[in-house]
Structures are given as C-alpha cells and as structure tokens.
Nucleic acid binder design. Structure first.
Length: 727
DNA sequence: AGTGGGACGCTTTTT
DNA sequence: GCGTCCCACT
C-alpha cells in the first residue's frame, strides 16, 4: 500500500500523510508540488478515507485538471470517474447547474463570453445615454469583473468599494447588468463563483449537503486564488476542515485577474491549527539555474521566505546565457539557429520552449521557425473556441439549445447576411421589451404583423422555421447530424465556402472539427458547457514540436531548454504594469521572470533586442533590469558574432553597457527600421542588397559610405550603406 | 436601409 | 499592423 509513498522525500511524504485538518504546503518551483497533490489524492482513496466522489480537487487550468486526473488514475490503476476534479470555474458551473433556481436561473443557463458581456454592457450604457468614447464599456467590464472577483454582488458594494467610473454610476450599471443577465438566463465567468458562493451563504441546507459530500478538499496553485474563490473554499471547508492548499507566493502572477497572495497569509488565520510544510528541494533544474532564479527573486520584498535547494546531485550545468541582438528579427534568427543546433545534436524539439511576455511576440518566432522548417506549437493564444467561426457556430448551437438566448441570436441573425441591419434589430428589441419576450419571438411577431416586409420578412421566417425544424431534428437524427444540417441549411457554411480569403478553408476545417467534437457529448447543452469552460487549443499537440507560449501559460510546465526572449525594459517588465501597479506590479513581473527561469531543466537562454517594432514603428529599448539582477556568477554573456557585437556597442541608442542609464524605451521617430551604425566592411560592387523602401538591388558603385544601387523595382538610387542589408 | 471603404486606436497576462 | 468604428455610397 505504501508503494505510492516510496518515492517521496520526507517533506513530501509528510504533506501526503498529514490528512486531517488544514494543511498549507508552500512548494517552491520544481519541488514536486503536483506529485504531492496527486499522491495525496490517491492516498486518501487507497486508505479508504473517502470515496472518489467525496474529494473535491480544484485546479486553475484545464490542463492541470486533466493531468491530475490522469495521474490519479495511474496510481489507482483504473480510470478515475465520478470525481469532483476540475477548474474553479468548471466545478462552480457544475454546482450552479444543480441549484440554478436559487440564483434566479434555470439549469440550462448560458455561459457568456467576453463578446456577449461587452454587448450587454454597451446596450445598457447606450440606454443610459452615456458617451461610449468617454466611458469605455471595457473599463466598466473590468470594474464589474473585479467586484465579482472580490465576491461583491451589487448589494454588497459598500461606498468604500464603489468606483467613481461613469460619475459614480458603475454600481447602478452593475445591478442593471446582473438583472439583464438573469433575464437572459445567462451567466458570465465571474458569476459562476459569485452565484455559488451567494447560494452557499444564503442556504445552510445546501451548504450542509456539500459538507456531507466533500470530506477532503485539495487546492492547486493556491497563491492565484482570488477572494470569491477563497470564500467558496472556506465555506466548503468549514465543516471538517480537511483542506489542503498547495502554492508558492513566488509564483503568484495573476493579481491583475484579482488573485490575492494574501490568501496564503489568511489561511493561517482562518484555519486555526493549520499545519504548514515547506517544500524546498528542487529536482528539476541545474544548480546554476536555481542559483540564478533565487538571486533574481531575492530582489522582491515581503516574501514568505523559501530557499530552493538543489535536490539532485548531478552536474551543476551551464550558466544562464544572455544574448544581445540588434532587433527582433535577429533575435528570432538566433533562437532558430540554436534550436537547429540542439536538434542536430539529438535534442527533441518538444523539450524546448520559447516563453514570451505577450502573445504578440510569438509571431516573429513562428515566421522564423516556419522558414527553417522546425515544427512548433503555440500553446494558449487564440483558443479554439475563441475563433470567430467557432463562436458563430456556438451561437447557432446556443439558439438551438435555448431560443431565449438573445445574445447568441443577435450574433447570427445577420450571419450570413440576411438583410437585417440596425433598424431591423432595433425594431426587434423594441417589440421584445414591450411584450417581455425573447428576440426570436419578437422577430417572428414582427414578420407576422407586417412590420417586416419582403426579403427581410422571408429571411426571418426561413430562419425561424429552420430552428423549429432543427430542434425537432435533434430527436430524429441526433445532435451531431442536426448541427451539421443547421450550419448547412442556415447558409453559414456557404458563407465561408464563398469567401475567397486565405483563412476561409481553415475556418471550414475548424467548423468540421467542431461538429466532430460534438460527437463526444450526448447533448448540445453538455457540449456548450465544454466549449465555454474547457475547450482549449490542443490541435497540433502531437509530434515532436517546439513549444511556444506566454510566461503565464508556462507555469507548471518544464523543459530541458528554455528561451526567454524580449527581456527589455518596457516589454519585460511591462511598462504598463509598472505604470498601473508601481512596485507591486514590478514585483509581479519579477515573479514572472522567476517562473520563466525555473521552467528550465538544463539550460536557459535569455535575450534582448536593441530595436523592436511596436505597432507600426520601431522602438529602441535597453536590456531589462532583470538581466542585471541575476547574480553575475551564474550568467554568461554570449558574444553573438564579433561583427554583430561591435555594431551593438557602437549603436547610439544602445545602452546595455550602462545598465543604470535611462530605463524608459525611446520611440524612434522615423518609420523605417532603425539603421545600423556605419559598417566597417564596405559592401563591394556586385553585391545584392535589400533596402527597406526600395527593395532588392545590385550595388553598381561604392564611394565611402555611399552606394549606387540599381534597384529591381525602384531604378537607380544613391543611398547610404547603413540603410541596406546584404540580401 | 445595408454594405463597404477608410480612419483611428491600441493590446500584457486568462478561467 | 490589425481589428473596430464611422461615414459615405448604393
């Protein structure tokens, strides 16, 4: 029986075997956090302390949930079914479906995406005659989201918690928004936890039911919980107090989403007699990487204090490599070359990762890897269900599933074009409001009483009879076939078939995949839940591929080789974060850097470029302060080609040699790519060159730093050599 | 009334 | 460089 405990170190083992009472495990990066959690789960089951359905296990990401499910199944030797194991949101949704009526909803409520939320808010703000230019609906959405993160229903907002946005009307708009959602029988993401927490607070009988059900609670990534999530956990753990939270304050990187590291401190206060165990032995990274990461994170104040110690005795490993590049293209080239070299010496692509600060950065690397023919996958970024065509198809499914889903209906009423525009929609809204009926019914009523005429009326009738027919078809032909028929008969598929853009074929493929995925579910409702909460972009997952993702998405993962590009002031740490959240923001960025470094098992390559294109123009930037903060003895500055380096040093805007120089990036006025400094290697006559404005050409004469070039498109010109590159 | 072209603004990070 | 919003055109 103690088989599963055998491979644990003493602290890990203690974390697994301290079963009763509250337990907080402070687990540093790579100290076997996931192993502890899954082993603990299995231990509870194997020692027959609880049935699988009596354990509540909460993670942040679907990936983590999937992994834990697999690992538990592996330890148990059988598929772990009937578990309450999932993300906060998925579990909350499951609870809310069971008690929907207590929140004024029916069990078939829709879960809205950001688009829908924004549309509702916009409508409400327009109704209030607010100037949407001055008051951005996005800003209101963020405020409401933050309230929800803090467990605040409109009624719970105290004057101190109120916002002065839209002249203090934010709270009123929030209340109106919640009312509107209830009418729509819908929920946004934040509502899932908010409603459930409210239900548990107001209905002791429901709470007691869950107390009976859940004998043990396990929580992953505890440092990233926000206040509602904390309240929810605390309510559920109230009875037996058997709650185990695993987290690392140094890896708290979601405060912008409402996460509160303070929840870690609160734990000891709210759960008296809590045991606290620290996991500090790192089994993942080399000593060099550990020391570098520790040195970096030591610059943060107010840490709970944990020191990572190497847990294995093999080689100390390479130092962190720091590479300076001229611009982002060169950076992508450098990374591509190193990946090629590593692969040639037998390293698997899937053991390498490029971790970026912002999603937009992946593009340069994608382009480069495509050119080099290196397989890669982008993790995160645009999720499958975030694609336009999938959202449209989902909207069709939502109307099919729930005819009163006005938001979904609004999305597809004129998609494909049916000649219904602003006016038509406005009339429908009016009728819907007058008679308190859904938009679908309003549309029909307008068609029937002659308010809509001709083409428009026919279009509305065709669509509505279509929905009736498809709804009936579910029973006859099943939901999968019906979905395919609906996308076909509604003209939606044709819309993309006639679209001549390059993306269209891919979209049609995605739609087919969408229909295929439906087969894994026994109802459209179940499928919609999955799409809203779970479905992620794992399509190119198979095969040996280089991983590309944001630093946020990388948390919890590990790779032999990690590339950390874009370590520049303004980009990383992000200027925006520092402007908005000051030192707190900077420290969170630093934790992000720490997360990045500690993903690496063998080697980490940090790079920064002197010039980067942001929006349309070029920006010159200096190396990130984080580079200076890694203790020098664990760092190796790479000389990326002598010529290159000389240019770097002499580049006027480049101040890497003076780390204390001005931190803010400068915007370069001209629109062209910044010129490299004059080169010492004259470009000989006959060289094929490339110029940003004039394109490709041949050098016909050379005088000092001036070149006569015969351009293929632009004719003969005389230009300075620093404006051209060898082609 | 609906559609399409041009101007503008701007993006961190995610369930 | 891209998506969104507004205005002019059909």
């Amino acid at each position: 029986m103690s088989d599963h405990l055998a491979r644990l170190n003493p602290e890990q083992r203690e974390s697994v075997e301290t079963i009763d009472g509250p337990l907080l495990v402070l687990a540093g990066a790579g100290t076997g956090k996931t192993r502890v959690l899954t082993t603990r789960f299995a231990h509870i089951l194997l020692t027959r302390r609880a049935f699988p359905s009596q354990v509540l296990a909460v993670t942040f990401t679907n990936k983590a949930a999937r992994e834990m499910r697999e690992r538990v199944a592996a330890i148990l030797g059988q598929p772990a079914d009937g578990l309450w194991l999932g993300t906060f949101h998925a579990l909350a949704a499951r609870m809310l479906r069971r008690h929907a009526e207590l929140a004024g909803l029916t069990p078939s409520f829709s879960i809205l995406d950001t688009d829908d939320q924004l549309r509702v808010l916009k409508q409400l703000m327009e109704a209030e005659r607010l100037d949407l230019k001055r008051f951005a609906p996005q800003a209101l959405m963020a405020i409401i989201q933050r309230w929800k993160d803090r467990g605040l229903t409109p009624a719970r907002i105290t004057p101190a918690e109120d916002s002065d946005f839209v002249n203090g009307r934010a709270k009123i708009l929030y209340a109106a928004y919640q009312d509107r959602l209830r009418t729509l029988n819908a929920c946004d993401f934040g509502d899932l936890l908010l409603h459930v927490t409210e239900i548990l607070r107001a209905h002791p009988d429901v709470l007691a039911e869950y107390h009976r059900r859940f004998r043990y609670i396990l929580v992953d990534e505890y440092q990233d919980t926000n206040l509602v999530q904390y309240l929810w956990l605390r309510l559920l753990a109230q009875g037996h107090q058997n709650i185990c939270c695993v987290g690392d304050d140094d890896q708290s990187i979601y405060s912008w989403r409402g996460a509160e590291v303070e929840n870690i401190l609160r734990f000891e206060k709210d759960f008296t007699n809590a045991t606290i165990i620290r996991l500090e032995r790192n089994y993942r990274s080399t000593e060099q990487i550990l020391a570098a990461a520790s040195g970096l994170i030591a610059h943060n104040t107010g840490r709970l204090g944990k020191t990572l110690r190497p847990g294995r005795n093999d080689a100390t490993g390479d130092k962190i490599k720091i590479v300076s590049l001229w611009d982002s293209d060169e950076e992508a080239r450098m990374v591509g070359e190193r990946i090629e070299t590593l692969r040639r010496s037998g390293h698997a692509a899937s053991e390498m990762a490029i971790l970026v600060r912002a999603n937009a950065q992946t593009r340069a690397f994608e382009e480069r890897l495509i050119t080099l023919g290196i397989p890669y996958k982008v993790i995160g970024g645009l999720r499958f269900y975030e694609r336009q065509e999938i959202r449209d198809a989902v909207a069709y499914a939502r109307v099919l599933n729930q005819p009163s889903d006005d938001l979904a209906f609004e999305r597809i009423i004129n998609l494909p074009r049916r000649g219904i525009g602003d006016q038509g929609l406005r009339a429908m809204h009016e009728r819907a409001r007058e008679r308190a009926i859904p938009l679908t019914a309003a549309a029909l009523s307008l068609a029937d009483d002659g308010s809509l005429r001709g083409k428009v009326r026919d279009a509305v009738r065709t669509l509505m009879t279509g929905f009736d027919r498809w709804r009936a078809g579910i029973i006859r032909e099943g939901h999968v076939t019906t979905m395919a028929i609906m996308l076909d008969e509604s003209g939606y598929m044709d819309m993309w078939k006639q679209d001549k853009s390059v993306e269209a074929p891919g979209r049609i493929e995605n739609l087919k995949e969408f229909v295929r995925a439906l087969a894994d579910f026994d109802s459209i409702g179940g499928f919609l839940e999955h799409v809203a909460l779970v479905m992620d972009n794992e399509q190119n997952a198979e095969g040996d591929r280089v991983n590309m993702m944001t630093l946020h998405a990388a948390k919890g993962l590990e790779f032999d080789t990690v590339f950390l590009p874009g370590w520049e002031e303004g980009l990383f740490p992000s200027q925006r974060t520092m402007d908005e959240s000051g030192v707190k923001g900077l420290e969170e960025e630093r934790r992000l850097a720490y997360v990045g470094l500690t993903r690496a098992r063998q080697r980490a390559i940090v790079s920064h470029a002197a010039n980067r294109r942001i929006y349309a123009n070029w920006q010159s930037s200096i190396p990130s302060r984080f580079i200076d903060e890694i203790p020098a003895e664990y760092v190796e500055i790479e000389t990326a080609g002598s010529l290159q380096r000389e240019r770097m040093i002499r580049a006027p805007s480049f101040t890497s040699q003076f780390p204390m120089a001005a931190r803010r990036p400068q915007v370069i006025e001209n629109w062209e790519k910044p010129a490299r400094p004059a080169r010492t290697d004259g470009i000989p006559v006959g060289t094929r060159v490339f110029h940003q404005k004039f394109g490709y050409g041949m050098v016909t004469a050379c005088e000092d730093d001036k070149l006569d070039i015969d351009f293929e498109k632009a004719g003969t010109k005389r230009v300075l050599d620093r404006f051209v590159e060898r082609a």
